[in-house]
Design a protein around this nucleic acid. Structure first.
Lengths: 193, 193
DNA sequence: CTGTGCATGTAAGGAGTTACATGATTGC
DNA sequence: GCAATCATGTAACTCCTTACATGCACAG
């Protein structure tokens, strides 16, 4: 059946189940909007590589047309693609999420540098979290109107809400860590608020 | 300065800042205990590869001895290693965490399969979360006694607590998603509890 | 007429994985 | 005696990234 497609391949296949025919460029944009929060933001070159593979396997159909004077290729999922996607979703265990959290990694060994640097890092992280929340909130808003049970964007909404909650929690954690950093050892005093 | 070491290299360097001389095997064990939750669980082969690189760069010192009749090599961080680690922590932006969350990815496109499968997946995830929480809670317990400000395991404790909260939140999210799945469309009725 | 966005690719390389291979030590 | 754990590595391969390369369309 499924000839060993990387997860990103299935993710692209998944993006194509929402109805539209998409170009590689558009797939990259959609991935940057939503997929990046809980999977990856694949490089353009990988999107094309993956589309090539999926086309060769017959899981997507390439629709090459000429627009003005340039070649544009859109892709649509095929019946075989739908079947492969289902086979993957039903047949392979989901597995535990992998978190590559450089902030936490650095916090773990924060004793190896000065507190000021760690504080700076957490501040920066808070800023990036704000931006991520703004971005994701906008995506979430765009799903309104079709986000109720049975509607087209039911699951994307569920996932977006999950993500928003996650980022909110991260913000809290970062703030708590920041507060914890300001506490000094048993002999020290708590610095003024 | 730092000759392009992968993050995992710095992670290993970080593990060696907690005092002990460790063998590759032991480093792998420690990584599996703690690092895996917010970075990765590197394969054994990669641990050795990385230790080789760090040794070549003079960032760790290999201490090869013969124990009984077999060769055992332990590694300790050198002064140069400490400097390189600090340079990395202070000099490179931490960057936003990357989450590879197959459960969320699958939930996003859950319309492509039957609700029963999605429910099953979320159940499985809840089980794995329980196990992860147990494991991490045990690690957290082992840090007690040296987890206050200024003490050796201050930061690891902070990070472990962060992780435990994260897993608790994930459990809540998964349960909420499960509850959301049981709601049917506007025309349907809410199934009995 | 220049920069930004749209659109598509190739090539090189790195990080990390699985599979394979080997052997000592310890506990049952 | 056998399995699990300790301990160390090599080889092949894959996913994915960065850098490079090209060219149209459109707005200011």
């Amino acid at each position: 059946m499924s000839q060993d497609i990387p997860v990103t391949g299935y993710a692209i296949l998944g993006l194509l189940t929402f109805g539209d025919e998409l170009t590689g460029y558009e797939i990259k944009q959609r991935a940057d909007m939503t997929l990046r929060f809980y999977w990856v933001s694949p490089a353009m070159s990988q999107v094309y590589t993956e589309l090539r593979r999926l086309t060769d396997l017959g899981l997507v159909a390439a629709d090459a047309r000429t627009e003005g004077s340039r070649e544009v290729t859109s892709y649509a999922i095929t019946a075989a693609g739908q079947a492969a996607l289902r086979g993957w979703m039903d047949g392979t265990p989901a597995g535990f999420p992998v978190l590559k959290h450089t902030v936490l990694l650095r916090l773990l060994i924060a004793h190896a540098t000065e507190p000021a640097h760690t504080r700076q890092m957490l501040h920066d992280y808070l800023g990036e979290l704000d931006r991520a929340i703004d971005d994701l909130a906008q995506v979430r808003e765009s799903l309104r109107g079709a986000d109720r049970p049975g509607e087209a964007f039911r699951f994307p909404s569920l996932v977006a809400d999950w993500g928003l909650d996650y980022f909110a929690a991260e913000t809290q954690h970062a703030k708590r860590a920041l507060a914890g950093l300001d506490e000094t050892g048993p002999e020290g005093t708590v610095p003024p608020a």
